[in-house]
């Protein structure tokens, strides 16, 4: 899948949020093909409206979700339950909000909708479809970005 012009703001925003909130500095890109599909993923979808329309779907493998919430809270987490899923959803929300701020510098005005758990069943075709996957000491995260200009 080709990297579109949206790839960089998504990568930058993800890096920025994980560094500030979790003190993660070892964030590296990885190809979507290498993304660990071996474990169950927590999927969080965030709708985008405005100059761009579509959906960002975040995939957090279980280990990543647990590590992130442990770092945030300083408490041991042993399963991806309602508490963990909600904390991770808020992080997806914060990353998405940061992307929108970065896009506004390119005169793109967009809003995000509240995050929902799961993948939205959307059959629409989008002109910009890309994946942004990263690896960190807390685990991997992959973003599926499907957006079109309104």
């Amino acid at each position: 899948m080709m990297k579109t012009e949206l790839y960089t703001p998504f990568l930058d925003a993800t890096r920025q949020v994980l560094q500030t909130m979790l003190d993660l500095s070892d964030i590296a890109e990885r190809s979507a093909e290498q993304f660990d599909e071996g474990q169950e993923n927590l999927e969080i979808s965030v709708g985008v409206v405005g100059d761009l329309e579509g959906t960002i779907t975040y995939r957090f493998p279980s280990d990543t979700s647990l590590n992130i919430v442990q770092i945030l809270s300083g408490m041991e987490m042993d399963s991806v339950d309602d508490f963990v899923a909600s904390a991770v959803s808020e992080i997806a929300n914060i990353i998405s909000g940061t992307v929108m701020t970065l896009l506004s510098a390119d005169n793109l005005t967009c809003d995000i909708l509240p995050p929902v758990q799961g993948r939205l069943d959307n059959q629409k075709e989008y002109t910009q479809h890309t994946q942004c996957c990263i690896t960190t000491s807390a685990g991997d995260i992959c973003l599926d970005i499907a957006l079109s200009r309104a």
Partner: peptide, 21 residues
């Protein structure tokens, strides 16, 4: 209980981001 667990998780992430950023 489920409502409060969800609230706790969101509050945690929101608070850290709000104060740290």
């Amino acid at each position: 209980q489920q409502l409060m667990q969800q609230f706790g998780g969101r509050l945690l992430a929101w608070l850290v981001n709000h104060v740290a950023v």
